[in-house]
Lab assay of single mutants.
Amino acid sequence: MQGVVKVNSALNMRSGPGSNYGVIGTLRNNDKVEIIKEVDGAYEIRFNGKVGYASKSYITIVN
Rank of each mutant, 00 (worst) to 15 (best):
S19N: 13
V39A: 06
P17R: 04
G18T: 11
I61N: 03
V51C: 08
S57P: 08
S9G: 15
I24R: 02
S9Y: 13
N29A: 07
G16A: 06
I35K: 00
A54L: 07
A10I: 15
I36H: 03
G25Q: 11
K6C: 14
V51Y: 07
G41P: 02
K32Q: 11
I59T: 00
G16K: 05
M13W: 07
I59Y: 01
K50C: 09
K6V: 11
N8R: 14
Y53A: 01
R28G: 07
Y53Q: 01
I24E: 03
K32R: 13
Y43E: 00
S19V: 12
G22W: 10
Q2K: 11
Y21W: 09
Y43M: 03
I61T: 06
Y43C: 03
K6L: 08
I36N: 03
Q2C: 15
T26W: 08
G16Y: 03
K32T: 11
L11I: 15
V51R: 08
R46C: 12
G41Y: 08
I59C: 02
G52S: 02
I59P: 00
E34Y: 12
E38P: 04
I24Q: 03
K32L: 14
I59W: 01
T60Q: 14
I36C: 08
E44M: 15
F47T: 03
S55E: 15
V23G: 02
E44V: 10
P17K: 04
M1W: 13
G22D: 15
P17H: 05
N48E: 13
N12K: 14
G49E: 06
A10K: 14
K50A: 09
I45D: 00
V51Q: 09
G52N: 00
S19E: 15
A42H: 15
V5E: 01
M1C: 14
L11Q: 09
L11G: 05
I36P: 00
I61R: 06
N20W: 12
S15T: 09
Y58C: 14
N63G: 13
L27C: 03
N63D: 12
K6P: 01
R46L: 12
T60C: 14
V62M: 11
V5W: 01
K37S: 14
T60L: 13
N12A: 15
S15N: 09
S15Q: 07
I45K: 00
D31A: 07
V33A: 01
N30A: 07
G3T: 02
K6F: 07
A42V: 13
N8P: 11
K50T: 11
V51F: 07
K50H: 08
S55G: 09
N30Y: 07
V33R: 00
E44Q: 14
S19W: 12
I59L: 03
Y21P: 03
P17D: 04
L27A: 02
I35P: 00
P17V: 07
D40R: 10
N48K: 12
D40T: 07
R28T: 08
G22V: 15
V51H: 09
V23M: 04
G41T: 08
S15W: 06
V33G: 00
S57E: 15
I61Y: 05
D31Q: 06
K56D: 02
K50V: 13
N8S: 13
L11S: 04
R14F: 15
S9I: 12
V4D: 02
Y43L: 04
V39W: 09
S57R: 14
R28M: 12
R46D: 05
G18C: 09
N8Y: 11
S19R: 13
K6Y: 08
S57H: 14
L27Y: 00
I61M: 08
E38D: 06
N48W: 06
L11K: 11
G16P: 03
T26M: 10
N63Q: 12
I59S: 00
N30C: 12
A54H: 02
N30L: 10
N30M: 09
L11H: 05
N63L: 11
S9M: 09
E38Y: 04
N63F: 11
V23C: 08
A42T: 14
K56F: 03
R28N: 11
S19K: 14
V5D: 01
G22K: 15
K32H: 11
N63R: 10
K37Y: 05
Q2W: 15
E34P: 01
I24W: 01
Y58D: 08
N8T: 14
S55F: 08
K37M: 09
K50W: 06
K6H: 13
V39P: 01
A42L: 15
V23R: 04
N63V: 12
R46G: 04
A10S: 13
D31C: 05
D31V: 04
K50M: 14
S57Q: 15
A54N: 01
V51L: 10
K37N: 12
E44G: 03
R14Y: 15
D40E: 12
N8V: 13
S19F: 11
G52L: 02
N20A: 11
V62Y: 09
T60P: 02
Y53W: 14
R28W: 08
K56S: 10
M1H: 10
T26I: 15
V39C: 10
S57V: 14
D31G: 02
S19H: 12
N12H: 15
R46H: 08
L27R: 00
M13Q: 02
I24G: 02
V51D: 03
T60Y: 14
V5L: 03
V4R: 07
V23K: 07
K50P: 00
I45F: 05
A42D: 15
Y58M: 06
T60E: 13
K37E: 05
S19G: 11
